[in-house]
Simulated assay, not measured.
Amino acid sequence: MSDVTPAGYRAPMRIEPFQIAVPEEQLDDLRERLGRTRWPEAEPVDDWSQGIPLAYLQEVCDYWANTYDWRAREAALNRFDQYMADVGDMDVHFIHVRSPEPDAMPIVITHGWPGSVVEFHKVIEPLANPVAHGGNAADAFHVVCPSLPGYGFSAKPNEPGWGIEKIADCWAELMAGLGYDRFGAQGGDWGSAVTSALGSRHPDACIGIHLNMVMRGSRPKDREPNDEELSALAAAKHYNDWDSGYSKQQSTRPQTLGYGLTDSPAGQAAWILEKFWAWTDCDGHPENALGRDEMLDNIMLYWLNATAASSGRLYWESFRQMPRMTVDVPTGVAKFPKEIIPPVRAWSEPIYSDIRHWTDMPAGGHFAAFEQPELFVDDVRAFFSLLR
């Protein structure tokens, strides 16, 4: 027997069970830091136009320190089977819930920033076991929900190059390592970009993609914009003028930003909570869209793992050279009305050549699965039913 390793050989993927188990010392440290927060003065306006109001952030941080029960939340997240896999030289944390239905379709669902796998905690079980949640067995999925590199419990890249294309290749390798040669994919925010790259780069494996945020192509210049396009253009202008500072900082100096956010839980909470206010369909207050505990669950995955800098680096990687791509696999789009920039089909079609499903949602914003789990699940089922 030859002891020579064939060129290109890669050992079988190492996959190990994982459970969230935060040491008590980390929780003590969090409470102590929250108690020692050095607060700025209150904003001289009576709204969120200068950022998250002092009184609300103090209220949330007091709740976080004295009422929020991480152990109960940790146990709730641990109801999902979780694993760590060595994929593409990256330790990737992922939830993997196999459906009881034998003909279930594999699907990989991907979060973005400032999200995490917590975004999907209300949709994983209905997707995997539709019969138990008022659906049909024919709509079942084997659900794989990874944490992006540098996010949550996944490892942090220690060298440049981990942009959306490499992450898409990593996801394709992960799905193959789990025995899923053909699968669907879903994503929003950076998850939309990764999902689009999966469809573009791995069409033999990716059956189709479902998006709740769409990469924007160019507006047709041979006609005046219609009302839908004017609304999207106004949203884009508002984003560029008033809402994109976080993106500029994370895409240019994520390391500098990371020092303050990694040292201050109040700072990390403020950085994320402001986006839950700005990007949800919340009528002016984030807790109209999301529960306080689940927002803190999401913030905890950033705080506990000190991922302020590593999560921001995805902007540095991707904005320096955003890949141009076309996606020819079947595509479904869920258009939520309070998306940062609501997608316009005419702008999307030059990138996505086979849009088979487009839904105008009645409510919801950027964090679709988090805000509107039932609408999200119904639309994912409806789109992939076309491909089964």
Score class of each variant (00 low, 15 high):
Met13Trp: 11
Glu16Lys: 12
Pro17Glu: 00
Phe18Ile: 08
Phe18Pro: 13
Arg36Asn: 12
Asp46Arg: 15
Trp48Arg: 10
Ser49Gln: 11
Gln50Tyr: 15
Gln50Thr: 10
Pro53Ala: 15
Glu59Cys: 08
Thr67Asp: 14
Trp70Phe: 05
Phe80Pro: 03
Met84Tyr: 11
Asp86Pro: 07
Met90Ile: 06
Val92Tyr: 00
Ile109Tyr: 08
Val118Asn: 02
Phe120Asn: 06
Leu127Phe: 00
Leu127Thr: 01
Ala128Phe: 03
Ala137Val: 03
Ala140Ser: 15
Ala140Cys: 08
Tyr151Met: 14
Ala155Lys: 06
Ala155Ile: 01
Pro157Met: 08
Asn158Tyr: 12
Glu165Asn: 12
Lys166Val: 07
Ile167Ser: 04
Asp169Trp: 08
Trp171Phe: 15
Gly177Cys: 05
Leu178Ala: 06
Tyr180Thr: 02
Phe183Thr: 04
Trp190Arg: 00
Ser192Asn: 04
Ala197Leu: 07
Arg201Ser: 12
Ile207Cys: 11
Ile209Phe: 00
Met213Ala: 12
Gly217Lys: 05
Ser218Arg: 13
Pro225Leu: 09
Asp227Pro: 03
Glu228Asn: 07
Glu229Ala: 04
Glu229Ser: 03
Glu229Thr: 02
Glu229Asn: 03
Ala234Gly: 08
Ala235Asn: 11
Tyr239Ser: 05
Tyr246Val: 01
Lys248Val: 10
Ser251Asn: 12
Ser251Tyr: 03
Arg253Val: 14
Arg253Met: 13
Thr256Ser: 15
Leu261Tyr: 01
Thr262Glu: 14
Ala266Asp: 01
Lys275Ser: 05
Ala278His: 05
Trp279Ser: 00
His285Asn: 13
Asn288Ser: 07
Met295Thr: 11
Asp297Tyr: 05
Met300Tyr: 11
Tyr302Asn: 06
Ala306Pro: 06
Ser311Asn: 00
Glu317Thr: 06
Phe319Met: 14
Pro323Met: 02
Thr331Phe: 13
Ile341Gly: 04
Val344Met: 03
Glu349Trp: 09
Tyr352Leu: 02
Ser353Cys: 09
Asp354Pro: 07
Ile355Leu: 11
Pro362His: 09
Glu374Thr: 11
Glu374Tyr: 06
Val377Pro: 02
